[in-house]
Computed example of a mutant assay.
Amino acid sequence: MTVPLRAEGVELAHGGAPICRDVTLELARAEVTALVGPNGSGKSTLLRTLARLHRPESGRVLLEGADIASYSPRGLARNLAFLTQTPTVPSGITVAELAAYGRHPHRGLLTGRSGSKDRDAVAWALEATGTGPLRDRQIDHLSGGERQRAWIAMALAQRAPVLLLDEPTTYLDIRYQVEVLRLVRSLADDHGITVAVVLHDLNQAAAFADTMAVLAGGRIIADGRPADVLTEDVVRTAFGIDTTVISDPDTGLPTCLPYRRDGEPAPVPGAATGAGHAADH
């Protein structure tokens, strides 16, 4: 079966300075892949490369088996949606109007008018993101979490099978971070969308993603299921800090515990009774 999106031997640079080399990454169909790593590791640049917004120095990106460079702009937008970290929009528009922007790749070249398919797609995007009740609210008047869901609704209205999100939880408090990540999880589980998301929080990535790719030192140093990727050795190599990683006894998902301010390892919850245990490496 064709992989929805794949980077093959990609080398990335910015302003002539190399960022990443020999990056190969596959996004599995209807799964969430989290890109994590320290600042400056190339997470967002790699995501932009997957969206054809940054040209690699070498290597290629394949979308449904075809070189992404071969797609027309409209053809690409019908197959892949990208939401930047800090999108901007003219003030005064409503949530429904914002979502309707996502239909531009599907409208007629001559008339530009929306039809029943466009209206259905917008209605679906609003329902999927829980923004239906907000459809007539102006974007300027929404909370941070509501605004982010409205932006995702715009991306979903493209009805593209692949969605790329660059740090969608930035500037949100913990409640809205979890809300957005639950939405991302439902897009894969309930709607079959292939999602790649750049995140900073390792524990959130492990909890909500099917796979994690850790970028550091100009390459992907670990790629796979969270239980295999989020280890003390990987965190030390990528971020240069010592941590304690435990495995949740109910879910088996790893959780990274930072060291205390005195430099001693953080206590493992339940260690005295055997309820917690260090993750295997």
Rank of each mutant, 00 (worst) to 15 (best):
T169Y: 11
N39A: 05
R6Q: 02
V268M: 05
S58G: 05
Y259W: 05
G42R: 00
S58K: 07
L134R: 10
N39D: 04
L126H: 14
D190G: 06
G37L: 00
N39V: 12
L156G: 09
I246H: 14
G217R: 00
S247Q: 11
R261G: 03
M1F: 14
M154V: 06
Q85L: 09
T45H: 02
G217M: 00
L47A: 12
P249W: 14
P73S: 01
G75L: 07
D262G: 06
R147M: 14
E146F: 13
A207N: 07
P258L: 15
G9K: 11
P87S: 10
G115M: 02
R48T: 04
L25A: 09
L80A: 09
M1N: 14
G16F: 07
G92T: 04
S143A: 08
L181E: 11
Q177H: 12
V36H: 00
R147F: 07
A209R: 11
T251Q: 15
G42I: 00
R103E: 06
A238C: 11
T111L: 09
Q148N: 14
N79A: 12
V245M: 13
V162S: 02
V180I: 15
R119T: 06
P265S: 03
V3R: 11
G65P: 06
D280G: 10
L230A: 04
M1K: 14
S143L: 06
F82S: 03
A128M: 13
D190W: 11
R219A: 13
A128P: 06
T129V: 15
G218A: 03
G65N: 14
H54Y: 02
R113Y: 00
R78M: 11
R107G: 02
A77K: 02
G217N: 03
A205W: 12
L35V: 03
V23G: 06
T86H: 13
V245A: 13
P73C: 08
L215C: 02
T243A: 15
F82L: 10
A275R: 06
Q138I: 10
A272V: 08
H200L: 13
V198S: 05
E179Y: 03
